[in-house]
Design a protein around this nucleic acid. Structure first.
Lengths: 218, 218
DNA sequence: GTATTTAGTTAGATTGATATAACAAATGTT
DNA sequence: AACATTTGTTATATCAATCTAACTAAATAC
């Protein structure tokens, strides 16, 4: 069994991995808010446990076993988020901090029950895919809104990086998963967009927002 | 804030306290399954934090602040047990182990929400009172079944010490909270009783079982 | 292609929770 | 009262997770 700390490192490694699946010590140390020596010594520990591939001064990579364990922690996190939102009435901006703690509960029956009560959900309240019980995670290949052009009609499917501030912003604009969005225009200078959705005929969205809105065609 | 370990010590002190509210180091060390030196050093730590009254070689007593903190941990535990049973369909024999972990979650809104969704329950699935948000715990003065005499008609209201084995036993006999029990006879030799309830006309219960069944008059 | 900057490592210390071994105080027994 | 037993304490060590300080390797910049 992995300790809560180890689970957090695995999760960070899984979430941070770039195209080749490699992560640096400094990325780890900053996302987990620990010093580099701390991250360095945990990396040695995970190496000893066979959960990562690592050589001095080289980037870190999860082994198959490490990937599976990480996916299962992410599964616990996302199932919990969905449960909190669907069954307990929490807003999508509230669920992360609670799930961050509950994900370390060691009780297979508890998470299985959540999964069953939720009817085996495929995504969490932010649209991120929930890995299955075997640690397999679907690749929902959504595109960010900013890659679309005027005239495109799309549906908000998920969020890239869902901080509380971003979620509060979306709440204030009444943007939810499933909202149908029509691209009206794109400003070439700064990448901002004007869109319409629901009864909002002309809503301006900054490029930063558009990059984080993951959409799919209707 | 108290660490999970500290919360466990407070809970143990609260649950173990005898008539005068005093607990020994050895009781603490055996209930928490740690060595005596470990319990001893944690006692010093709780003393430093003002949560207990303690002098070398004397029994341990909770301060008012310590009692309140302990009651609030017990509140989190029992609310969780009730939530697991009522909202997630777990049996009363399954809830303890999960609640033992969830009780350490630090999220007032999470437990408040449970409380609200459950309509401010007064007892947990084993009939134990749930302390209120101020740490005040009701004294439900139930009497154990073995203090009753033939002819008494009572209702199962709570359990004293609810181990999984005991709960499995009660399940096997179809005994639930609220079950109306009629005392038919008491065996003077060993304190066992013959009772009737539901469609069971003559069920024998050992003294050990009767001591743990807390009942109230109809 | 040296020099500077950034990233990573090693050494050593700290803190909380735990243990064993050895000893001391309190309690119980005749 | 003397002895034995139980209970509690001290000293010391370990382990996981953390840190700072000092150093080294790699990357970047002129």
């Amino acid at each position: 069994m992995a300790s809560p700390t180890e689970e957090n490192y695995l999760k960070a490694l899984f979430n941070l991995k770039d195209e080749e699946g490699k992560v640096s010590i400094s990325e780890l140390s900053s996302t987990l808010e620990v010093s580099m020596p701390t991250a360095n010594s945990m990396v040695k520990n995970l190496l000893k446990k066979g959960l990562i591939i690592y050589e001095k001064y080289k980037p870190i990579e999860l082994t198959e076993e490490g990937k599976k364990m990480a996916a299962l922690v992410i599964r616990k996190h996302r199932l919990t988020e969905m449960y909190l939102a669907e069954k307990m009435g929490f807003g999508w901006e509230e669920v992360h901090d609670i799930a961050e703690q509950i994900e370390h509960i060691n009780s297979p029956i508890f998470f299985e029950r959540m999964d069953k009560l939720l009817n085996h959900p495929k995504i969490d309240p932010h649209g991120s895919p929930i890995p299955n019980a075997q640690g397999i995670i679907a690749d929902l290949k959504h595109k960010p809104l900013n890659e679309h052009k005027p005239g495109d009609a799309v549906k908000l499917a998920a969020l890239a990086h869902s901080s509380t501030e971003f979620l509060d912003f979306l709440n204030s604009r009444n943007l939810k998963l499933g909202t149908e969005i029509n691209v009206i225009s794109v400003e070439p200078f700064d990448g901002s967009m004007v869109v319409s959705y629901n009864d909002r005929k002309s809503e301006g969205l900054s490029a930063k927002v558009c990059e984080r809105l993951l959409v799919e065609f209707l």
